[in-house]
Computed example of a mutant assay.
Amino acid sequence: MNIADLRKSYEKAELSETDSLADPLKQFDLWLQQAIQGQVPEPNAMTLATVGSDLRPSTRVVLIKGYDERGIVWYTNYESRKGRELAGNPFAALQFHWVELERVVRIEGVVEKVSDEESDAYFHSRPLDSRIGAWASPQSEVIEGRGVLVANAAKFGAKFLLQPPRPPHWGGYRLKPEQWQFWQGRKSRLHDRLRYTPQAGGGWRRERLAP
C-alpha cells in the first residue's frame, strides 16, 4: 500500500468552547483520566521537545510523573542530551497523543528542576532495578555495547545493595505551561483545536485555531 493513501476519518468526539473547561489544567486532567479509564496504551507517555545551543530541536518520549497548578513533572538524567539542552535553554514543549481517542494535547513553557526533596521522594518510590539503572546508564553517551550497561548495573548493585541513593545527576523537571492546545479529531479534517494562553488579569484566554 502507498503510505500516502493511508487515511482515517476522525469521528469519535468533538471539542467546543462551551463544553471545554475554562481551566486548561482541569481540561487536561479530564482528558488524561479518560485516556487511563479507556485503557489507552501508555496514556502517561509524552513527547518532550528541546532546543540545543546549535538551535537544532530534538525530541524523545518521557513519562509524566505528576501535574498540578505548578506544572508538568518528569524525571531523567540531568547530564543527558535533554538535560544539557534544558540547562542552556529552559524553554520546551510537550505533546500527548492518545490515538484511540483521536486527541492531542500540546503544552509549551519554561522548565526548571524540581526540589531535591521531590526528586528524592520519587527516586525512592521506584523499583530497585530502576534505581540501579539510574546509576548504570551514562545516558546519551556513546558506549561500546550493552555489556557496559550490564557490568555497570552489577557494579552498582553490589555497591549499594538494596539502598541505592539518588544519583546527583538524576532528578525531576517541571514545565510551567505558558500555552496549552487541545486537539480533537473531526470528520473531513475539520478538526477542533483550542488554545489557552494566560490573561493579564489572571485566568486563561480560550481561542479556537484553524486546524
Rank of each mutant, 00 (worst) to 15 (best):
G157W: 06
F182A: 04
R56K: 07
L149R: 09
A35F: 02
E17G: 15
Y196W: 06
Y10M: 12
R193V: 05
D68Q: 03
T50R: 00
V40T: 09
D120A: 08
P57H: 01
G145L: 11
D192S: 05
L86I: 09
G83A: 04
G202Y: 02
Q181A: 08
A158K: 15
L15D: 06
D120R: 03
H169D: 15
A13I: 04
Y196D: 03
V111I: 11
V150A: 14
M1L: 15
V142G: 09
W170Y: 02
L128G: 01
D5Q: 14
K26A: 15
K159T: 12
G66I: 00
E108G: 10
Q181W: 04
D120W: 02
E79H: 11
I72V: 12
L30K: 14
K176P: 07
P167A: 12
R126D: 01
R56W: 04
R84V: 12
E144Y: 10
L101Y: 01
S130I: 05
A136C: 09
G88R: 04
G83C: 07
P198Y: 02
S53M: 10
W98C: 07
Q95L: 08
L175T: 08
D68N: 11
V40C: 07
E207L: 00
H169M: 09
E112L: 09
P41N: 06
A200R: 12
A22F: 09
K12H: 13
S125T: 08
R166I: 08
D120L: 06
A45D: 00
G203K: 06
V148K: 10
H191P: 03
G133S: 13
V111E: 00
W183T: 02
E112C: 12
E144L: 11
Q95T: 09
D120Q: 07
G185L: 05
E14H: 14
E117L: 10
W204M: 05
Y10F: 13
Y122F: 08
L149F: 11
G147R: 14
D120T: 00
W204R: 02
P164F: 02
S9A: 11
N152P: 08
P165Q: 10
S137I: 08
L63N: 07
I64C: 11
K12W: 05
W135T: 00
H169E: 14
S53W: 00
S115N: 09
A13F: 02
R106T: 09
K176V: 14
D23N: 12
F123Q: 02
G88K: 03
F160Q: 07
R106L: 01
Q163F: 09
N77L: 04
S9L: 13
I132M: 05
T47R: 06
N77P: 10
A49R: 05
V61S: 08
L6M: 12
R206Q: 11
L162K: 15
A4H: 13
S9C: 15
Y10P: 12
F96S: 01
P167Y: 04
S115F: 03
D19I: 10
S20E: 08
T76I: 03
S58N: 14
